[in-house]
Structure formats: structure tokens, C-alpha cells
């Protein structure tokens, strides 16, 4: 039930250590159009099934992680540091 999350830095930890930010979208360029920003802030694909979500390891390493899991079966497929996927350090 997504109760255990294997943090790439801290190992397998209970989900209560994490706070969940929401769907793992890439942030638009600051000069992107209003439509792009509106889509980023408000619109969600919200798929049923495989899904990538930002989880913040607030009670551990305090890194932002991207958790890929199935939101019907609650299987967790992968947990990686957000920087490793997005290549950003913000």
C-alpha cells in the first residue's frame, strides 16, 4: 500500500516520513506563455495507473524524490532523486 518507500539516500523508510507534493511535472521556463504556466500550476493529467509523484523526504534526507508507482495497486516501481531525472538543483 505504498507504506514503505526506498529512499535512494536513506534506504527503506515508512511513508509517514515523507510529505507528498503532487504530480512530478517539469517546471516551465520563466518566460513560458501564460497557457503553459496555467497548465503547470492547475491542470493535471491525473492518470489511473502508472504515475510519477514528487515526494519530499521531510523526516530524512530532505531531498525531493520522484516516486513512480501504480495508484490503483499501490505498487512502487522506482524511487529516484529528482535531480537525477530532472537534472535540476532547485
Amino acid at each position: 500500500m505504498a507504506s514503505l518507500i526506498t529512499c535512494p539516500h536513506c534506504g527503506t523508510r515508512p511513508k509517514e516520513e515523507f510529505s507528498i507534493r503532487g504530480t512530478a511535472l517539469a517546471r516551465p521556463h520563466p518566460a513560458a506563455s501564460e497557457e503553459d504556466w496555467h497548465a503547470y500550476v492547475y491542470l493535471r493529467e491525473n492518470p489511473k495507473g502508472r504515475y510519477q509523484e514528487y515526494w519530499h523526504h521531510a523526516g530524512g534526507c530532505r531531498r525531493f524524490l520522484i516516486v513512480e508507482r501504480d495508484n490503483v495497486t499501490h505498487d512502487v516501481f522506482s524511487v529516484v532523486d529528482a535531480v537525477a531525472i530532472r537534472g535540476m538543483s532547485e
Binding site: 500500500m1 505504498a2 507504506s3 515508512p14 511513508k15 509517514e16 510529505s19 507528498i20 503532487g22 504530480t23 491525473n46 489511473k48 495507473g49 504515475y51 509523484e53 515526494w55 495508484n71 490503483v72 495497486t73 499501490h74
Partner: peptide, 13 residues
């Protein structure tokens, strides 16, 4: 439960 879920069942925490 705070994370996205389409399952009609929740987490023990």
C-alpha cells in the same frame, strides 16, 4: 491519504 490514488482502499498510517 495525501498521495494520488484511484484505489477504493486506504493506508494504515
Amino acid at each position: 491519504d495525501y498521495y494520488s490514488s484511484y484505489a477504493q482502499r486506504g493506508n494504515l498510517a
